[in-house]
């Protein structure tokens, strides 16, 4: 168990520098900051498995790597299966005395929404069900950004992507996003959460919490995408914050089946405030019916979370 779950930035800055400089992420991409928070949050050494995607591509163009920790990339859809193999080997080698018994290592897999919601869902489900001791971090930029912005099942309703283009007849994606955190929670794992880089304190606490429990854990983190969402590159953190303030991206956690919303905006903003700065929604700014549909979806999910949160563990009743 981590000594305490929160860290201030001074403490964090002494624990990590994050990714090394020189990686090729787009200017303003928020996932390097997310990685910094995660690597800094970990008390023990970590080994990382990374799904194919932007993060893998921009941080490891041979012979340059930006990773300060052992890192393995296998393929697109199998980060969870890969880390489950690493973790299994660790257990076997400990048991056989081939590595010292006091050598504590934590295992973290990173995947984007393509590698997690879609092509890698089976691998993730399998690894969680088997109960491997690892943290899966989903950085959700709501589309296949690495291949040039195509829809994923994380892409929001009405968003324009190159495979859900806003056309004369069809106004972008015709389906709402899938609720992956709920799907993961249905595996009855010890800990699942949603976080945002804008709320760094909450994010770091969640990572420390996840790394302190035995068994599979999952954190879904919103990661705005400059070219994919279409906004000025200085706005990444601001947009992540707007996603939270509009309740588009609720910050919550599911611990042993019990839900807790970690942040309830006192004066929630209408979802349009989150949509407005993004070019992928530009075509619906004059379509109040579509904006209303997104608002309805956001409100409904929020209501559902409030309802789920009512069930409290025995000691808190």
């Amino acid at each position: 168990m981590a000594e305490k779950l929160t860290l201030n930035l001074k403490e964090l800055s002494k624990r990590t520098e994050g990714l090394a400089s020189g990686h090729r992420a787009c200017a303003g991409c928020p996932f390097p900051a997310i990685i910094k928070m995660i690597l800094g949050a970990a008390d023990d050494p970590v080994v990382v498995a990374n799904a194919t995607g932007c993060m893998e591509v921009v941080t490891t163009i041979f012979p340059y790597t930006a990773w300060p920790v052992p890192w393995i990339h296998n393929a697109f859809e199998n980060a969870a299966a890969t880390i489950s193999g690493v973790e299994s080997a660790y257990k076997a080698l400990l048991r056989k005395g081939k590595i010292p018994g006091n050598k504590k290592i934590k295992f973290i897999a990173f995947g984007g929404d393509g590698g997690t919601y879609d092509i890698g869902l089976q691998s993730l489900s399998g690894a969680i069900e088997r109960g491997h001791n690892f943290l899966y971090v989903l950085y959700d930029n709501e589309g296949y950004m690495n291949t040039g912005i195509q829809r994923s099942s994380a892409t929001p309703f009405a968003a324009h992507t190159t495979t859900s283009p806003a056309g004369k007849v069809i106004p972008g994606k015709t389906q709402h996003r899938k609720d992956l955190t709920e799907i993961v929670a249905a595996h009855n794992l010890p800990y699942a959460a949603q976080a945002s880089p804008s709320h760094w304190n909450d994010l770091i606490r969640k990572v420390r919490k996840a790394l302190s429990v035995e068994g599979p854990t999952f954190i879904s983190i919103i990661s705005p995408c400059v070219p994919g969402w279409g906004y000025p590159e200085h706005m990444s953190i601001e947009l992540a914050k707007l996603a939270v303030e509009t309740k588009f991206w609720p910050l919550y956690e599911v611990e042993n089946g019990y839900y807790k919303i970690n942040y309830k905006p006192r004066n929630p903003l209408p979802v349009i405030e989150f949509l407005k700065p993004q070019a992928r929604f530009k075509h619906i700014l004059n379509r109040p019916d579509l904006i209303e549909e997104i608002q309805r979806f956001v409100d409904e999910r929020w209501e559902r979370l409030l309802w789920l949160e009512q069930r409290k563990p025995e000691e808190n009743k």
Binding site: G22, R24, Y64, P70
Partner: peptide, 19 residues
């Protein structure tokens, strides 16, 4: 094995000229 044996090496690649 196409590994990068010493991490991290990315600082050898300068990105300041993107600015």
């Amino acid at each position: 094995g196409a590994i990068i044996p010493a991490a991290p090496t990315s600082p050898e690649f300068k990105t300041g000229d993107w600015r």
